[in-house]
Design a protein around this nucleic acid. Structure first.
Length: 567
DNA sequence: GCCGTTTTCGGCCCGACTGTTTTCAGTCG
């Protein structure tokens, strides 16, 4: 079988090894080592196969000499002898069952051993009660059936604004109850991850029982997944899970910290606490010697007890933020209020829905000092007439400056969509990939490099071309591209449109290391989209970007000089 | 199996909920 050796495949391989070890009752720490390695590969910002080629596998934290050797064998021959030994006597179907929420290795193994072939077969065998005779009991089987429904229905993750909307509705419901003293969205939503799995919410209250009961009565509840003294999970539309945790106000800071995560951030924090003689949980910080618990009403209390700064939630991925916080060296991240203008927008001159004047006025009301209209450079566009309209609009008012721009396709044959003399008439040129997304890596890289060499080009827009939940991004040699962009003094875009969020946060951080500067834009196609700027800012923050890394935080006068604008 | 101001051994984050069980295993985050 042809295999592509993607990060996803390696992740699955490592998770399967972990699961097999669990079934065979291996050392729990060995099991965790494989899980940690799988997590690391899954979240790696570079292609694992490329790291292998440059002999950098052991630079992935959590991948040590053993796993690196196994992966070397895997990339060389397509299989790993040791893993095959581990998988011995384990039916293959077990690994399919792991995809069902609520089914872990032990249950999956038991099902496979009972002769269940696949998920469809499992569904049939539960419904026909065949499995009841094979050592399974009724309630767990019912839960597995629910899990199968969820597996079939649920797209893995949802876009950040969709999660935000669900959270908003549930928070409004929660706030109606007088026992709710405070309530916040946490988890990946608070960390502003591009896509969110479950919606996590917290409540401070002295009456958790009442709050949990009230939560379960949220009008959109489709199913109650679980319900305990301090926590509950409901399922709402589209199978989206909403998790609630309740703590009294004196522990609320600990709860915020615990439930914001990420998992790896928490694990690192707890190891750190342990070294200093403390144990962290959602109830506070316990001094191990004395068993004395120090409550943390505010989140800052958790961090200050360990002698560190509070990292902004966007940074809590255990990617160096804890070390930085300990040294008091956290970056001052860019904020929405720093943004002075929007440089990537569309009007109905191309595929937008509003006029240039409407877009400009809407931008003015959001407090923008300038806006670039960067319509697609369709060859049929009446470029000069459009330029004239912009010029006239600028003369007609002085509340906002409209910058003339174009978004120009980089063709698959490395040429640009329109000739240089048209580009020259515009103040800002964005280039982007809109066709042939699957060119081989080297061709794609050269295609981009060639476009960047054009002296009229200023910004490389939504660089990876990914569409979240729909389409993977292009494959390119990002390090080479980042170096070139920095050298040319050009810019990368962070596109804030919710299903793009492109450049992705991990690549923002990498590009920044090479000295690249960015624009954060909305890519608005109608006036309502102009307020999507906050999502682009979130991506920049997750990429450790500060105000000075972002050129559209500059007032128009300064932007004009670095972009060499005409007026 | 990983890792190192406890560095090549000896540790490794912490707790909730479910089901079924009088003390725990499995799963999840």
């Amino acid at each position: 079988m042809e295999t592509k050796f993607t990060n996803k495949e390696v992740t699955t391989l490592l998770r399967n090894v972990s699961a097999a070890h669990q079934v065979k009752g291996a050392n729990p720490f060995q099991i965790r080592a494989y899980d940690v390695a799988a997590d690391a590969v899954e979240h790696a910002s570079s292609d694992v196969r490329a790291l292998w080629e440059s002999e950098d596998l052991d630079k992935i934290p959590g991948v040590g000499s053993h796993i690196a050797n196994y992966l070397d064998e895997y990339f060389t021959s397509g299989k790993v002898k040791h893993f095959e030994t581990v998988f011995k006597n384990i039916p293959n179907s077990m690994f399919e069952f792991l995809k069902i929420p609520g089914v872990g290795p032990k249950t999956a193994y038991k099902l496979a051993k009972a002769g269940v072939k696949n998920i469809a077969d499992l569904e049939e065998k539960i419904k026909s009660k065949t499995l009841l005779k094979k050592g399974f009991t009724e309630k767990p089987l019912e839960n597995i059936l629910q899990g199968i429904e969820e597996f079939k229905r649920k797209s893995d993750r949802i876009l950040l604004p969709v999660a935000g909307e669900v959270a908003k509705q549930v928070l409004e419901h929660l706030r109606k109850h007088k026992a709710v003293l405070a309530t916040d969205p946490l988890g990946s939503l608070r960390r502003r991850v591009a896509t969110v799995g479950d919606v996590d919410l917290s409540v401070a209250s002295n009456d958790p029982k009442e709050v949990i009961e009230h939560f379960k009565k949220f009008p959109g509840t489709e199913r109650i997944i679980e319900s305990g003294e301090h926590t509950a999970t409901i399922s709402v539309r589209n199978g989206i899970h909403v998790d609630l945790m309740v703590q009294p106000p004196e522990h609320y800071g600990s709860l915020l910290h615990h439930f914001t995560g990420s998992k790896n951030h928490n694990i690192h924090m707890r190891s750190l606490a342990r070294e200093k003689g403390y144990s962290i949980s959602e109830y506070g910080i316990k001094e191990i010697k004395t068993d004395k618990v120090r409550p943390c009403p505010k989140e800052d209390d958790v961090y200050s007890l360990l002698g560190m700064q509070t990292p902004p939630p966007e940074l809590r991925e255990d990617a160096g933020e804890i070390e930085a916080a300990l040294e008091n060296k956290l970056p001052q991240l860019v904020e929405l209020k720093d943004i002075k203008g929007d440089l990537h927008t569309h009007s109905f001159w191309s595929d937008g829905q509003n006029s240039i004047a409407e877009m400009a006025k809407a931008a003015t009301s959001l407090g923008r000092e300038y806006i670039a209209l960067t319509d697609h450079s369709y060859p049929t566009l009446r470029f000069y007439q459009r330029l004239k309209e912009i010029e006239q609009f600028n003369y007609s008012q002085d509340s906002i400056r409209v910058i003339t721009g174009l978004e120009v396709n980089i063709n698959s044959d490395y040429t640009l969509q329109v000739p240089d003399e048209i580009l020259a008439k515009h103040d800002i040129i964005f280039v982007s990939i809109h066709t042939s997304f699957r060119q081989p890596k080297e061709e794609m890289t050269n295609r981009i490099l060639k476009a960047l060499e054009n002296p009229h080009v200023d910004v490389f827009a939504h660089p990876t071309g990914r569409l979240l939940l729909e389409r993977e991004g292009i494959e390119a040699d990002w390090e080479t591209i980042f170096k070139r962009i920095a050298h040319l003094g050009k810019f990368l875009e962070i596109d804030g449109y919710p299903n793009r969020l492109d450049l992705p946060d991990n690549l923002v951080r990498e590009a920044k290391r090479f000295g690249v500067k960015f624009t954060i834009d909305t890519d608005a196609h109608q006036i309502q989209h102009l307020s999507l700027m906050e999502y682009g800012v979130s991506v920049a923050r997750r990429g450790w970007a500060t105000k000075k890394d972002i050129i559209n935080t500059l007032p128009y006068r300064e932007l004009k000089s670095i972009l060499d604008l005409k007026n």
